[in-house]
Amino acid sequence: MDCVLDVCDLRMRYGKVDVLTGVSFTARRGEVLVLLGPNGAGKTTTIEVLEGFRLRSAGRVSVLGSDPAHGGEAWRARIGVVLQSWRDHGRWQVRELLAHLGRYYAPYSTPGLTRPWDVDDLLETVGLTEQAGKRARHLSGGQRRRLDVAIGIVGRPELLFLDEPTAGFDPEARGEFHDLVHRLSDLEEVTILLTTHDLDEAERLADRILILAGGTIIADGSADELSRAASTRSEVRWSRDGQRFVHAAEDATAFVRDLFRQYGESVQDLEVRRASLEETYMAMVREAEAGAARRPLGVVT
Protein backbone atom coordinates (compact mmCIF):
# COMPACT_ATOMS: atom_id res chain seq x y z
CA MET A 1 0.00 0.00 0.00
CA ASP A 2 1.67 3.15 -1.15
CA CYS A 3 -0.79 5.81 -0.03
CA VAL A 4 -0.28 6.22 3.72
CA LEU A 5 -2.46 9.26 4.24
CA ASP A 6 -5.52 10.09 2.20
CA VAL A 7 -7.53 13.04 3.45
CA CYS A 8 -10.47 14.31 1.44
CA ASP A 9 -12.57 17.33 2.37
CA LEU A 10 -11.92 17.01 6.10
CA ARG A 11 -14.13 19.38 8.09
CA MET A 12 -14.08 20.23 11.76
CA ARG A 13 -16.52 22.44 13.59
CA TYR A 14 -16.42 23.39 17.26
CA GLY A 15 -19.85 24.66 18.20
CA LYS A 16 -20.57 27.28 15.56
CA VAL A 17 -16.95 27.82 14.59
CA ASP A 18 -15.61 26.10 11.49
CA VAL A 19 -11.96 25.36 12.15
CA LEU A 20 -11.38 23.14 9.12
CA THR A 21 -13.50 23.91 6.08
CA GLY A 22 -12.26 21.24 3.70
CA VAL A 23 -8.74 19.89 4.02
CA SER A 24 -7.49 17.50 1.33
CA PHE A 25 -4.05 15.98 0.87
CA THR A 26 -2.28 12.67 0.51
CA ALA A 27 1.06 11.26 1.59
CA ARG A 28 3.01 8.43 0.02
CA ARG A 29 5.14 5.97 1.92
CA GLY A 30 8.45 7.44 3.08
CA GLU A 31 7.42 11.01 2.37
CA VAL A 32 8.14 13.86 4.79
CA LEU A 33 5.29 16.36 4.88
CA VAL A 34 5.64 19.61 6.77
CA LEU A 35 2.42 21.30 7.80
CA LEU A 36 2.78 25.05 8.16
CA GLY A 37 0.24 27.63 9.16
CA PRO A 38 -0.43 30.49 11.54
CA ASN A 39 -1.35 29.78 15.14
CA GLY A 40 -4.97 28.70 15.35
CA ALA A 41 -5.13 27.60 11.71
CA GLY A 42 -6.04 24.06 12.76
CA LYS A 43 -2.73 22.20 12.41
CA THR A 44 -3.01 20.40 15.73
CA THR A 45 -6.70 19.67 15.12
CA THR A 46 -5.84 18.13 11.74
CA ILE A 47 -3.14 15.96 13.28
CA GLU A 48 -5.39 14.91 16.14
CA VAL A 49 -8.07 13.78 13.69
CA LEU A 50 -5.51 11.71 11.78
CA GLU A 51 -4.21 10.21 15.02
CA GLY A 52 -7.74 9.18 15.95
CA PHE A 53 -7.77 11.37 19.06
CA ARG A 54 -10.48 13.64 17.77
CA LEU A 55 -13.65 12.85 15.85
CA ARG A 56 -14.07 14.82 12.64
CA SER A 57 -17.27 16.62 11.69
CA ALA A 58 -17.18 15.52 8.06
CA GLY A 59 -14.94 14.27 5.28
CA ARG A 60 -13.17 11.09 4.30
CA VAL A 61 -9.93 10.15 6.06
CA SER A 62 -7.78 7.09 5.52
CA VAL A 63 -4.65 6.55 7.61
CA LEU A 64 -2.61 3.42 6.82
CA GLY A 65 -5.68 2.10 5.06
CA SER A 66 -8.07 2.56 8.00
CA ASP A 67 -10.45 5.22 9.20
CA PRO A 68 -8.80 6.64 12.33
CA ALA A 69 -12.22 6.98 13.98
CA HIS A 70 -12.38 3.18 14.04
CA GLY A 71 -8.70 2.28 14.30
CA GLY A 72 -7.95 -0.65 16.61
CA GLU A 73 -4.88 -1.44 18.69
CA ALA A 74 -3.10 -3.13 15.81
CA TRP A 75 -3.59 0.01 13.71
CA ARG A 76 -2.43 2.26 16.55
CA ALA A 77 0.73 0.18 17.00
CA ARG A 78 1.82 1.23 13.49
CA ILE A 79 1.63 4.93 14.34
CA GLY A 80 4.03 7.05 16.36
CA VAL A 81 3.05 10.30 18.01
CA VAL A 82 5.21 13.06 19.49
CA LEU A 83 3.06 15.74 21.06
CA GLN A 84 4.00 19.37 21.62
CA SER A 85 5.05 18.83 25.21
CA TRP A 86 5.11 15.72 27.21
CA ARG A 87 6.28 16.13 30.73
CA ASP A 88 5.39 12.93 32.56
CA HIS A 89 7.60 9.87 33.23
CA GLY A 90 9.99 12.14 35.19
CA ARG A 91 11.03 9.46 37.66
CA TRP A 92 11.75 6.84 35.03
CA GLN A 93 15.25 6.07 33.85
CA VAL A 94 15.61 6.55 30.12
CA ARG A 95 16.48 2.95 29.24
CA GLU A 96 13.86 1.45 31.57
CA LEU A 97 11.14 3.66 30.22
CA LEU A 98 11.88 2.84 26.57
CA ALA A 99 12.15 -0.90 27.33
CA HIS A 100 8.86 -0.75 29.23
CA LEU A 101 6.93 1.14 26.56
CA GLY A 102 8.50 -0.99 23.84
CA ARG A 103 7.04 -4.17 25.31
CA TYR A 104 3.53 -3.04 24.43
CA TYR A 105 4.47 -3.19 20.77
CA ALA A 106 5.95 -6.72 20.79
CA PRO A 107 2.63 -8.45 19.94
CA TYR A 108 2.38 -6.32 16.81
CA SER A 109 5.59 -7.53 15.18
CA THR A 110 5.19 -8.66 11.60
CA PRO A 111 7.48 -10.91 9.54
CA GLY A 112 8.98 -7.88 7.83
CA LEU A 113 9.12 -5.61 10.86
CA THR A 114 10.30 -6.53 14.35
CA ARG A 115 8.69 -4.49 17.10
CA PRO A 116 9.77 -2.81 19.30
CA TRP A 117 12.99 -1.06 18.35
CA ASP A 118 16.04 -2.57 20.10
CA VAL A 119 16.60 -0.21 23.05
CA ASP A 120 20.36 0.20 22.58
CA ASP A 121 19.93 0.89 18.88
CA LEU A 122 17.18 3.36 19.64
CA LEU A 123 19.25 5.17 22.29
CA GLU A 124 22.06 5.49 19.80
CA THR A 125 19.73 6.63 17.03
CA VAL A 126 18.35 9.51 19.10
CA GLY A 127 21.70 10.25 20.77
CA LEU A 128 20.83 9.32 24.33
CA THR A 129 23.28 6.44 24.89
CA GLU A 130 25.18 8.34 27.57
CA GLN A 131 21.96 9.31 29.34
CA ALA A 132 20.55 5.75 29.38
CA GLY A 133 20.75 5.48 33.18
CA LYS A 134 19.52 8.99 33.94
CA ARG A 135 16.07 9.81 35.23
CA ALA A 136 13.95 11.66 32.66
CA ARG A 137 13.53 14.70 34.88
CA HIS A 138 17.31 15.16 35.06
CA LEU A 139 17.69 15.47 31.29
CA SER A 140 18.30 18.84 29.63
CA GLY A 141 15.52 20.31 27.51
CA GLY A 142 17.01 19.03 24.26
CA GLN A 143 17.65 15.57 25.71
CA ARG A 144 14.11 15.49 27.06
CA ARG A 145 12.76 16.25 23.60
CA ARG A 146 14.90 13.46 22.13
CA LEU A 147 13.38 11.13 24.69
CA ASP A 148 9.93 12.27 23.49
CA VAL A 149 10.98 11.35 19.96
CA ALA A 150 12.38 8.01 21.15
CA ILE A 151 9.05 7.26 22.86
CA GLY A 152 7.28 8.16 19.61
CA ILE A 153 9.34 5.76 17.51
CA VAL A 154 10.05 2.89 19.94
CA GLY A 155 7.28 0.84 18.30
CA ARG A 156 8.88 1.26 14.86
CA PRO A 157 5.96 3.23 13.45
CA GLU A 158 5.24 3.26 9.74
CA LEU A 159 3.71 6.71 10.17
CA LEU A 160 5.04 9.32 12.57
CA PHE A 161 3.35 12.54 13.70
CA LEU A 162 5.63 15.20 15.16
CA ASP A 163 4.05 18.34 16.59
CA GLU A 164 6.72 21.08 16.75
CA PRO A 165 9.47 18.57 17.50
CA THR A 166 12.38 21.01 17.67
CA ALA A 167 10.86 23.83 19.70
CA GLY A 168 13.58 24.92 22.13
CA PHE A 169 16.45 23.06 20.42
CA ASP A 170 19.84 24.68 19.98
CA PRO A 171 21.22 24.63 16.42
CA GLU A 172 23.31 21.52 16.99
CA ALA A 173 20.45 19.53 18.52
CA ARG A 174 18.27 20.71 15.64
CA GLY A 175 20.80 19.49 13.10
CA GLU A 176 20.99 16.10 14.80
CA PHE A 177 17.22 15.89 14.84
CA HIS A 178 17.11 16.66 11.12
CA ASP A 179 19.56 13.82 10.51
CA LEU A 180 17.27 11.54 12.48
CA VAL A 181 14.24 12.53 10.39
CA HIS A 182 16.18 11.92 7.17
CA ARG A 183 17.32 8.57 8.49
CA LEU A 184 13.80 7.50 9.43
CA SER A 185 12.33 8.50 6.08
CA ASP A 186 15.19 7.43 3.82
CA LEU A 187 16.29 4.19 5.47
CA GLU A 188 13.22 3.02 7.36
CA GLU A 189 10.65 4.40 4.89
CA VAL A 190 8.71 6.00 7.73
CA THR A 191 6.13 8.49 6.52
CA ILE A 192 6.39 11.65 8.59
CA LEU A 193 3.96 14.52 9.10
CA LEU A 194 5.40 17.29 11.20
CA THR A 195 4.41 20.80 12.16
CA THR A 196 6.86 23.61 12.78
CA HIS A 197 7.10 27.37 12.80
CA ASP A 198 10.71 27.22 11.66
CA LEU A 199 10.67 27.79 7.91
CA ASP A 200 14.34 26.91 7.44
CA GLU A 201 13.55 23.62 9.08
CA ALA A 202 10.58 23.11 6.76
CA GLU A 203 12.76 23.82 3.74
CA ARG A 204 15.42 21.41 4.93
CA LEU A 205 13.14 18.51 5.83
CA ALA A 206 10.07 18.60 3.64
CA ASP A 207 9.52 16.59 0.53
CA ARG A 208 6.32 18.54 0.41
CA ILE A 209 5.09 21.56 2.31
CA LEU A 210 1.41 22.04 3.10
CA ILE A 211 0.23 25.46 4.18
CA LEU A 212 -2.96 25.48 6.23
CA ALA A 213 -4.75 28.82 6.49
CA GLY A 214 -8.37 29.80 6.84
CA GLY A 215 -9.36 26.18 7.47
CA THR A 216 -8.05 24.80 4.20
CA ILE A 217 -4.80 23.86 2.44
CA ILE A 218 -3.77 26.91 0.43
CA ALA A 219 -0.51 25.47 -0.91
CA ASP A 220 0.87 21.98 -1.43
CA GLY A 221 4.25 21.44 -3.04
CA SER A 222 8.01 21.43 -2.61
CA ALA A 223 9.69 24.57 -1.26
CA ASP A 224 10.82 25.36 -4.78
CA GLU A 225 7.36 24.89 -6.31
CA LEU A 226 5.88 27.16 -3.65
CA SER A 227 8.32 29.97 -4.29
CA ARG A 228 7.60 29.73 -8.04
CA ALA A 229 3.85 29.76 -7.44
CA ALA A 230 3.87 32.81 -5.19
CA SER A 231 3.66 36.09 -7.02
CA THR A 232 6.72 37.63 -5.42
CA ARG A 233 9.50 39.55 -7.10
CA SER A 234 13.16 38.64 -7.18
CA GLU A 235 15.68 41.14 -5.98
CA VAL A 236 18.59 41.90 -8.30
CA ARG A 237 21.71 43.65 -7.04
CA TRP A 238 24.80 44.65 -8.96
CA SER A 239 27.47 47.30 -9.01
CA ARG A 240 28.80 49.49 -11.78
CA ASP A 241 31.73 51.91 -11.51
CA GLY A 242 31.85 51.36 -7.76
CA GLN A 243 28.21 52.24 -7.30
CA ARG A 244 25.76 49.65 -6.03
CA PHE A 245 22.27 49.20 -7.43
CA VAL A 246 19.17 47.27 -6.53
CA HIS A 247 16.08 46.36 -8.52
CA ALA A 248 12.96 44.31 -7.80
CA ALA A 249 12.14 42.29 -10.92
CA GLU A 250 9.14 40.19 -11.84
CA ASP A 251 11.29 38.50 -14.45
CA ALA A 252 14.83 38.60 -13.13
CA THR A 253 16.31 36.74 -16.09
CA ALA A 254 14.97 39.23 -18.61
CA PHE A 255 16.13 42.12 -16.46
CA VAL A 256 19.66 40.75 -16.13
CA ARG A 257 19.81 40.09 -19.88
CA ASP A 258 18.95 43.74 -20.51
CA LEU A 259 21.38 44.87 -17.88
CA PHE A 260 24.27 43.14 -19.64
CA ARG A 261 23.10 44.31 -23.04
CA GLN A 262 23.20 47.86 -21.77
CA TYR A 263 26.32 47.86 -19.59
CA GLY A 264 28.23 44.75 -20.61
CA GLU A 265 31.44 44.19 -18.71
CA SER A 266 31.01 47.11 -16.35
CA VAL A 267 28.35 45.10 -14.47
CA GLN A 268 29.92 43.57 -11.36
CA ASP A 269 28.88 41.75 -8.17
CA LEU A 270 25.65 40.47 -9.69
CA GLU A 271 23.26 38.81 -7.25
CA VAL A 272 19.74 37.50 -7.88
CA ARG A 273 17.78 36.58 -4.80
CA ARG A 274 14.47 34.79 -5.13
CA ALA A 275 11.90 35.06 -2.37
CA SER A 276 12.78 32.90 0.61
CA LEU A 277 10.31 30.30 1.83
CA GLU A 278 9.52 32.68 4.67
CA GLU A 279 8.56 35.49 2.28
CA THR A 280 6.59 33.08 0.12
CA TYR A 281 4.80 31.75 3.16
CA MET A 282 3.97 35.22 4.47
CA ALA A 283 2.69 36.34 1.06
CA MET A 284 0.48 33.27 0.67
CA VAL A 285 -0.98 33.47 4.18
CA ARG A 286 -1.65 37.19 3.80
CA GLU A 287 -3.36 36.59 0.47
CA ALA A 288 -5.50 33.81 1.95
CA GLU A 289 -6.48 35.93 4.93
CA ALA A 290 -7.40 38.87 2.69
CA GLY A 291 -9.50 36.50 0.57
CA ALA A 292 -11.26 35.15 3.66
CA ALA A 293 -12.04 38.69 4.79
CA ARG A 294 -13.67 39.44 1.43
CA ARG A 295 -15.91 36.39 1.66
CA PRO A 296 -19.33 37.14 3.11
CA LEU A 297 -19.61 36.18 6.76
CA GLY A 298 -21.88 33.48 8.10
CA VAL A 299 -21.97 31.45 4.90
CA VAL A 300 -20.86 27.85 5.24
CA THR A 301 -20.17 26.26 1.90
Binding site: R237, F245, V246, H247
Partner: peptide, 12 residues
Protein backbone atom coordinates in the same frame (compact mmCIF):
# COMPACT_ATOMS: atom_id res chain seq x y z
CA UNK B 1 18.49 52.33 0.06
CA UNK B 2 17.80 54.79 2.85
CA UNK B 3 21.48 55.00 3.81
CA UNK B 4 22.47 55.33 0.18
CA UNK B 5 24.54 52.13 0.19
CA UNK B 6 22.52 51.06 -2.84
CA UNK B 7 20.83 53.12 -5.51
CA UNK B 8 17.51 51.91 -6.84
CA UNK B 9 17.16 51.05 -10.50
CA UNK B 10 15.25 53.73 -12.37
CA UNK B 11 12.22 51.46 -12.43
CA UNK B 12 12.43 50.83 -8.70
Amino acid sequence: LERGEYSPSLHL
